[in-house]
Simulated assay, not measured.
Amino acid sequence: MFIRNQINFPSTEDIQRRFIDFPINEIISYVDYLPEAQEGRCHIYTYPYFMPYYGGITNNFPGGLFKCVRVVALHDGHPLEHEFFLQIARSFPRVEELSVINRKSQNRKQSYESNTGNQNLSVIEYSFLGALDLLNVHDDYIEEFLINSKTCFPNNVTLYIHYKSLQRVTHNFTSDTTRINCGKIDELQLYAETKCSNSSLQEYFPSAKIKYRI
């Protein structure tokens, strides 16, 4: 449910009291407040969780194991760091469709880059991922998924992305850091103002069927 009046916004404790007759380990609840949107979001569900979809996930996500979930949507007005995506991959090991909405840059990106060899950076594996939506994100999250030292996914992924964002992150389709994961894309849904004639684009995505969304 969505609540726009912060004064009346319930706390996690308020919600838990409403389920006092339920065993405490059966009801999971937490509250998000998105100040820029003046919007609140309450998550209430039984655990174990048997639905195939879990949406509106933010940094407040408490974790857990969700074996039945196939579609995951992340949406936060605060930065999402690499450790958060590691938690998401572990919590949703069978995720097939993943979308991210976040326009805030990552806070700890620079510390990762300054760490020679990314020794403390765990590579995140999405073993069953088939669709990745990065249309409404800061460039940092495109790098989070396309740089192979951060993320590994299968060879049959459909990527939804804006052309200009992709062009920036790949340094006009020349960067070696994103080349391996881009080579695994088998369908590229490009959102652009006009269809772009760029021979290096197809070379950079050798396995991809490229479709333009004007």
Rank of each mutant, 00 (worst) to 15 (best):
M1E: 14
F2H: 06
F2W: 07
I3H: 03
N5M: 04
Q6G: 00
Q6K: 15
Q6H: 12
I7F: 10
S11E: 06
T12R: 13
I28L: 09
S29H: 04
Y30A: 07
E36T: 13
R41L: 12
I44H: 05
Y47A: 03
P48S: 11
F50M: 11
Y53A: 04
Y53V: 12
G56P: 04
G56A: 01
I57P: 02
F61W: 10
G64C: 00
G64Y: 01
F66R: 01
C68E: 15
C68T: 14
V72Y: 02
H75E: 13
H75M: 11
H75D: 15
H78Q: 15
L80Q: 11
H82P: 00
F85V: 09
L86F: 02
I88N: 05
R90A: 13
F92L: 02
R94W: 00
V95A: 14
V95H: 10
E97S: 09
E97D: 06
I101S: 10
I101P: 00
K104R: 15
S105M: 07
N115H: 12
N115T: 09
G117H: 11
G117C: 11
Q119N: 09
L121K: 07
S122D: 15
V123L: 10
I124V: 12
Y126M: 01
S127P: 08
F128K: 14
F128L: 09
A131G: 03
A131V: 05
L132I: 08
L132E: 04
D133H: 13
L134P: 02
N136Y: 15
V137L: 08
H138P: 03
D139L: 15
D140M: 04
I142W: 08
I142Q: 02
F145D: 04
I147T: 09
K150P: 00
T151V: 12
T151D: 04
C152G: 02
F153L: 01
P154H: 13
N156G: 01
N156V: 00
Y160M: 10
S165H: 14
S165I: 00
V169R: 07
V169W: 10
T170I: 08
T170N: 01
F173G: 02
D176V: 11
T178K: 01
R179K: 15
N181C: 02
G183R: 06
G183A: 06
G183I: 06
Q189H: 14
Q189L: 12
Y191A: 05
E193P: 08
K195F: 13
Q202T: 03
E203L: 04
K211E: 13
I214S: 11
